[in-house]
């Protein structure tokens, strides 16, 4: 009898790995354990190049110097940044593309939400419509480069396409068709995200409000929208980043030009960091405004 009790006591005090490490520490170990593989890759392939490009932005370098990073690169202090700020041309291009993004993003998000809500309805042939609305992304990844050499689903591609088809489409007026086309082409990822988000709204909520006598309009405002509001914000950020970094953005082409020249690599780095700051500040302001609405 006494032996048994002793054995039980021993068992109770048996130390598992879990009890050696404190609960808190185990939690954090588990957290990092799961994310570590990706985080290592993230640091090596994204963070380190980013930090190196900060360093480069303070130098006058040529592409060929960078491979050794010694060569003839010269420390230039903040002169690169000063040059960019003082260059009126850069400022103008940046301001214009910034303003363009500002008015396009709400339209893109609104349009995407509208289409996603429609595509969620049950009607004949909705699978085909989903494919059709997602075609821009499929095409952008693969074939635009073959056909047009550059410009991923860009406005110029679309514009030239519409202009080339004299007849039906040119009668709409070139510029407006271009804008419409560009917005529709930019919104396909957002449509997909909204669609997936809309699927996550439990059907039971709709049933409940329907029994309570809500119209479709009311149930959209009081059920759907609050439920998917995080995705509205996600999509706004996505659209903003997308419009800042897409190929046909004038600032982007300016930056690529500088990089390709090879002699102004430091300048290009400085410009891209300033541009990134601009994007960041915009998004921070946006998040500050929407935070109250979120929760």
């Amino acid at each position: 009898m006494a032996k048994q009790i002793k054995a039980k006591k021993k068992l109770a005090h048996k130390r598992t790995l879990g009890s050696v490490i404190s609960f808190e520490r185990r939690k954090s170990l588990e957290g990092w354990g799961f994310s570590l593989p990706w985080v290592i890759g993230f640091i090596i392939f994204i963070m380190v190049p980013l930090v190196l490009s900060i360093r480069i932005s303070f130098y006058i370098t040529q592409l060929t110097d960078l491979y050794g990073f010694e060569g003839q690169s010269k420390w230039n202090g903040i002169q690169n940044y000063v040059d960019i700020v003082q260059d009126p041309e850069v400022g103008e291009v940046m301001l214009n593309s910034f303003l363009d993004s500002l008015w396009q993003v709400p339209i893109i998000v609104f349009f995407a939400l509208f289409v996603a809500v429609l595509l969620k309805q049950k009607f004949a042939g909705r699978v085909y419509f989903r494919v059709i609305f997602f075609i821009p992304v499929i095409l952008a990844g693969v074939i635009m480069s073959y056909l047009f050499g550059e410009g991923v689903g860009s406005i110029s591609v679309f514009g030239s396409l519409v202009n080339s088809s004299s007849g039906i489409f040119s009668s709409f007026g070139g510029k407006i068709t271009q804008y419409i086309g560009d917005i529709m082409w930019s919104s396909s990822v957002e449509i997909l995200i909204f669609l997936a988000a809309l699927q996550s709204v439990p059907d039971i909520l709709y049933e409940v409000v329907e029994i309570d006598g809500a119209t479709a309009w009311e149930s959209f405002w009081h059920v759907t929208l609050p439920y998917i509001s995080p995705f509205v914000i996600l999509n706004c950020i996505y659209a903003l980043v997308d419009s800042f970094t897409k190929y046909n953005n004038p600032v982007m082409s300016m930056m690529n030009e500088m990089t390709e020249k090879g002699t102004e690599y430091g300048m290009a780095s400085a410009l891209s960091w300033m541009y990134m700051l601009l994007a960041l500040v915009t998004i921070l302001i946006f998040i500050l405004f929407t935070r109250r609405w979120l929760k």
Binding site: L66, Y67, L280
Partner: peptide, 25 residues
């Protein structure tokens, strides 16, 4: 901190970090 690093780096333009990335790879 990790999450804000991830979201911040989303906004960066890949071509500007292209050469450092090449060196690392």
């Amino acid at each position: 901190g990790l999450m804000s690093l991830v979201t911040t780096s989303m906004m960066f333009i890949a071509s500007a970090a292209g050469i450092p990335a090449y060196l690392i790879i």
